[in-house]
């Protein structure tokens, strides 16, 4: 093989730039003493992580789930419930309530993973509109359960007095909490990149393009999709746990179908199936919300226009504007 000097592709550069943006924003804000913008960057990172989870199912697997709010909310409620029991010094379902993020994330991932397994085992036997409706129905079930369960705040939601801890870091301060969230985002992105480049990722994309053809080669699409769906739900639940800690509050709105829709919007806005797509979508979404929300209460109207523009003109989302899809992309 002849020696080749490494030339980073435009896709890789664009992805790195998008990933570096919330970090740069948080660092600048921290030095300038503008803690509000640190929190804004944290929101970007967490929503980006939630959408990265969805991107695994939607982008690689072509699974249009309208139920990912369930995983986001399960993560949020696990964080809230553990934190509130830890305050009271009581246990949760026989498990100790340790107000430690690593523990919360583990519980959130297990709970969401099990829920995704059941949801996927049923919904993945269908496709198209039926799949969308079944995922929606599962999420609505959890949504109404949360509303009807007064023990954890019901419709009013559950406040988190103190954020869960992280190995002694001062998580109540904006910058340490941002760094934890950003670390989680990097983990999610790395997992996505590794899976996408793996044989599993190839099979998942092949199942999206033609499941029957994949089956005729001896690989059952259902199992591949189910594994992807479960992993996808777990990543989104991790983001949900962080989101609850960020807001120090969790309510049924995290479980509502608007949330599921919002996650789809983030992925489509940024670029379906692209590594940094969901993060790019989350960045634009949060910044639009902030800038336009300051000018008009009807900011969602302009978000709608931006979405239209991206879908009609950009096709592949923001990422394809930054780095048009050539032979391969990052």
């Amino acid at each position: 093989m002849p020696e080749r000097s490494f030339v980073p592709s435009r896709g890789l550069v664009a992805s790195l730039a998008v990933i570096a943006l919330p970090l740069a924003l948080a660092l600048w804000a921290s030095f300038a003493g503008e803690t509000f913008y640190v929190t804004l960057a944290t929101r970007i990172a967490i929503l980006g992580l939630a959408a990265t989870g969805l991107n695994l199912a939607l982008g690689l697997g072509g699974l249009v789930s309208l139920g990912h709010a369930a995983f986001f909310g399960i993560g949020g409620y696990v964080a809230g419930i553990v934190a509130s029991h830890a305050m009271e010094g009581t246990s949760v379902l026989g498990l100790p309530a340790i107000s430690e993020m690593a523990y919360v994330w583990l519980l959130a991932a297990v709970a969401a993973g099990l829920f995704a397994l059941v949801m996927g085992a049923i919904s993945l036997r269908t496709s198209g509109v039926a799949f969308i409706m079944i995922t929606l129905a599962f999420a609505q079930m959890i949504f109404y359960l949360a509303i009807a369960w007064p023990g954890y705040g019901g419709e009013d939601g559950l406040p988190i007095t103190l954020r869960n801890g992280f190995f002694g870091l001062r998580t109540m301060r904006p910058m340490p909490f941002f760094l934890i969230s950003f670390g989680a985002l990097l983990f999610g992105l790395a997992l996505f990149a590794v899976l996408k480049a793996s044989r599993f990722g190839a099979a998942l994309q092949a199942a999206r393009q033609n499941g029957v053809r994949l089956a005729s080669l001896g690989v059952e699409p259902f199992r591949i999709r189910l594994v992807a769906f479960v992993l996808s739900g777990m990543i989104t639940a991790l983001a949900g746990a962080l989101y609850a800690d960020l807001n120090r509050f969790v309510s049924p709105s995290m479980l509502s179908w608007h949330m599921s829709g919002e996650l789809i919007v983030l992925v489509v806005l940024g670029g379906v199936g692209r590594l940094a797509g969901p993060l790019a979508g989350a960045t634009l979404y949060v910044l639009l919300e902030h800038v336009l929300g300051g000018l008009t209460e009807r900011w969602q109207f302009f978000l709608g226009l931006a979405l239209l523009a991206v879908v009609l003109l950009g096709r592949g989302g923001l990422m394809s504007l930054l780095a048009p899809k050539g032979v391969r992309h990052g």
């Binding site: 044989r199 190839a202 099979a203 994309q205 033609n210 053809r213 080669l217 001896g218």
Partner: peptide, 15 residues
């Protein structure tokens, strides 16, 4: 019928 978005190598390895 190849898997169009996969690389040649991925097509060969996928199954």
């Amino acid at each position: 019928r190849c898997f169009r978005s996969l690389s040649v190598r991925e097509n060969l390895l996928v199954a």
